[in-house]
Amino acid sequence: MLTADKKKSIKTISEQAEAGKLRRLLRFTTACWKLNLAGAMEFRFSFLLTVGTMIANNIVWIIFWGMYFERFPVLNGWTMQDVMMMWAAAAGGFGIMSIFFGNATRLANLIVTGQLDVFLSQPKPVLLNVLISRMSVSAIGDLVFAIFIFVGFGDVSLFGTLKFALALLLSTMIFIFFCVLAGCLSFWLGNTEGLSFQLFNALLTFATYPTGIFKGFGRIVLFTVIPAGFISSMPVSLIREVDLPFLYGASATAAVLCLAGILLFYRGLSRYTSGNMMGLRR
């Protein structure tokens, strides 16, 4: 039985109350990314094979489009270069999301199986902590592929590179927060893993087809419910030449998705029911 020296004061060793909060948040974020990468590289052969397979998978699509443009050089005003840049923006945005915010596509599963407990017990913004705690190895292949495509087909001048970087930023934000919104449905609807996956798949699929081939209602859907149009239009409306109304629209969409995603997630946390599933961080 305990006979503790009962009234000891515990001196904190945390800098939490001191200035430099943002710097420490960045350190935490980079530490998490480093661990993800270290974990992914734990199985060296599998790591290299997964990255290589994803690059090969994407190359198949490039060959398909290459064959198409050999027969029809222009598709509704889209050239081969535009289609390549569309792939670069979509694969790059998806790649960045899956490498650095890899839990975005798994959010519904984490919520419904009660795996947010560990994140909720730590003193960091929960959504950020959840998102950055996983890295998809295959997505490294997507990002490498996007960079190769940009170098091979894009405008690599300083202005061209800045425009491509902006396209990647917007594409990444749309991907992440669309997934967050879809995943948050689990707080209200229960197991929406399938629905969230379908919504994400729709976004990814439509982001890799030229916007020019969609008309009428389909086009409205692509710029509202499934905002893939803002990603697939990047080559003609931002990378080829800057169309300001499009840029404002894409930026506003990314910002609204971001705010709505964060708001919905934190609203949903009050409905979180946890669970008794065994869990280990991978």
């Binding site: 974990g39 560990v118 017990s121 008794n276 599933m277 065994m278 869990g279 280990l280 961080r281 991978r282």
Partner: peptide
């Protein structure tokens, strides 16, 4: 920041590291 928690069925440790 001021409490610690251990859930026997849920790990804080990274499985592969």
């Amino acid at each position: 920041y001021r409490i610690g928690s251990v859930f026997g069925q849920k790990s804080q440790l990274w499985y592969h590291l």
